[in-house]
Design a protein around this nucleic acid. Sequence first.
RNA 1: GGGCGAAUAGCUCAGUUGGUUAGAGCGCCUGUCUUACACACAGGAUGUCGGGGGUUCGAGUCCCUCUUCGCCCACCA
Length: 879
Amino acid sequence: IVMPPPNITDILHVGHGLNNTVQDVIVRWRRMAGDEALWLPGTDHAGIATQNVVEKKLAREQGKTRYDLGRDESDAQTTAYVDATGGTILQQLRAIGASADWSRTAYTLTPELSRAVREAFVQLYEKGLIYRGHRVIHWCSRCLTSLSDEEAEHEDEAGSLYHISYPLAEPISGLASVTVATTRPETMLGDVAVAVNPDDPRYRELIGKELILPITGIRIPVIADAYADPAFGTGVVKITPAHDPNDFEVGRRHSLPMPIVMSPTGMMEEGADAAGRVPERLRGVDRFAARAVIVDELRAAGHLGKVETHNHSVRHCYRCHTVVEPRLSDQWFVKMEPLARPALKAVRSGAIRILPERWEAVYINWLEGIRDWNISRQLWWGHRIPVWSCAAGHDPIISREDVTRCPKCSGPVRQDDDVLDTWFSSWLWPFSTLGWPNADARDLRAFYPTDVLITAPEILFFWVARMIMGGFAFMGDRPFHTVYLHGTVRDTQHIKMSKSLGNGVDPLRVVELYGADALRYTLVAGLGMGADVIIDPKDLEQSFAPGRNFVTKLRNIGKFILSNLGDEAVSPLSAIAPSSLSRSDRWILDRLDVAIADCDTALGPARPTGRTWRPSELRSGLRLSEYAEAARRFVWGELADWYVEAAKGRLMAGGADRDVARAVLVHVFDAALRLLQPIVPFVTEELWQQLPGHADDGTLARAPWPAQRREGTGGRDGAARGSEFEVVRETVAALRQLRSEYAITPGKMIPAVIVPARDAAARAVFDEEGGTIGRLARVTITLADVAPSGTAAHAVLAGGTEVIVPLEGIIDVERECVRLRGELEGLEKQLASLSQRLANEGFVSRAPAHVVEAERKKETEWTARRGQLADKVRSMCGG
RNA sequence: GGGCGAAUAGCUCAGUUGGUUAGAGCGCCUGUCUUACACACAGGAUGUCGGGGGUUCGAGUCCCUCUUCGCCCACCA
């Protein structure tokens, strides 16, 4: 294998890296489990900012006003684009051996996608799901395009609510004017009416009367419409149909004119139906400047009432954050309700699950209230809308192929100037990347429906929901069975890391300081289901040192094992007679099975058992942090801390038992490397390559995922011997505690007497494992039937075994008494609360039998232990 | 305005359907270069599980309420 150079990172910046890392971990896992997963990283949005710049540059160079993606460019330009944007990410992904199929990723400019987009448009049109609508949409006066609801983001702002009095043309019963309230006074130039609620007694008389619109002096009617809320403001609302979606509806109901008083660039101007509405002095004035001017003039003329501060949310362009202007215009829309129906059903029925589960409610809520999707954009790059209009006025032509002349009159045609929303191509992604609309495409048949979509919640609506709708609309099937929404990388202030905010972490620096494996490990281990990953950009050590330390530990375990293998052959575990396995061998093999089971539980199941997810499967799996923790616990806490330590003596002693230990070491370490490969791919690969016992030409990334041993650990007897190693661990822990308690130098060998519990198995454990215990605890063990008299430190193990360290001169009797009394006291306290629980009628009768049984058993054990401890205290401390 | 989530050790977080004495990593304290590893080893200290109320034999876990923070959605001028 060619290992990547050490300074290769799998990410561009940490935010991106999270997504790529999660995807790669899951794909690596699936491949080891036997799935030939095809990973399609990213979308045509990879590097959208760069894309924007590149497209504009290309368009300018070619003198085009519209740049039709996939149709206007040359191959060389495509290549340049890929290099400039997605290419960087993808090259790095390939460098780490990620299973990325990068030719499919930066496909924005390909003719294939262009074809798919046209196909989708035409299909929807033919089903009557695309229509041209004349309505008020969100308009960005900086990007000069319309936006969908999702692209116009709400941001809270402290604005002003201006109260303006509109005089009556002919005053009635002492009433000279009505007051309206507005946050956007400049739009009053486009007012065509004032509405009051028909049930509002205050204004009943006014309905049908006329008002003089200040500034312009135009006469407008007072109309009755339920839209006016008597409880808000003055109960009178001005109606500006061309610049407010609600007012537009009111205008339509009352057949009012709809003057446009603002230019696309946000300047005041007399647009359609607006002759005489914008005074000369305001023409060409920016909307916000015009607002100030108008407010001043109203004040001067005495038309301005109170001005209240008003916190409200204002829509901004998601890309440039300019305040979005509602604007009447003609746009293409997709009728969403019919598309949403199967998408809703899929999630409700469990055909598609969303993890974490709570996002399902958000998804359902959004789809239930879905509104039609404005798909036309006035940007100068994108997929152009495949609609041509006839110069002679015949019906427009909607076509998959380019149209040059009108089929009716053979006259000239003109393609619609607009391009499509970029998400109109993105929602086709699960199948357009696989060859759609060619139904016979090999990849489409092989890979659709796909499996897991991994992304951040922020594009649940933009992209995920629409892909699901698109999957059903164009393929008749779900695009994937699982949506996994991961968290966001944030700093300690919980602010999203981004280049523009400067709170990001440079991954190259992290890789340089801690290594790429440590970076991956840190991200994966920190990724609780749906939780954000918090990293302090000012304290990399806190975040990444644990990952680095773990990787180093792994390396050192490998170094130790490899150095003990030497040139001699290592037997495969299957060639070792089960009877020759030691307690520690059986124990670590048991622990390995547990670790494999824990990892499998954390990760799986990979797909639903049936057509839909069962309730028990719905919330399981893809718990990456639990998987990382299970693997780590096994490698460090069990393999390194106990098995390797216990094996040292056997390795040094040589003989047949040495070969058994070597075989088990290799087997267990090999499995551990497999478990870790998806999270720590580099170091595990490097170590595994050096490990004997597997095909030389293989790579760890392609090796099978470990399975639990079907034959167990050698029958009932074997299982018992495995659990007997727990007694060894307990004894060693007790001895270490005593040593530490009496500050005995760790290196010093001391004597220890063990009085095993009164059963043959316990006796055998200490007979046979005395050497191991002695090495691990640095003691020389003597077995006895009764505790020796004399000054000594004592410990009583759970099973009743006594551990005694007789050290005249070092052990202080008084101190030992204090220690033992403290221990006894603690035990008695716990025993008392336990007894109380068991004496409680309610507990015994209502708690499940197994819980009560466990408590009873505990009571017996603790009582015995208390007796032993009390004896110690009595004999040694005299009372 | 509606909805959702979070609050557990100094820090970052686990804690699955209520059931031992609430855990991990880092940090902290004590000791150690024990022939893989001081990025390590051994031992140790640290929690009114945000506040209050309730249900239950039993609550970090379920219900109500309050506080603080965060996120999503939203055409009330």
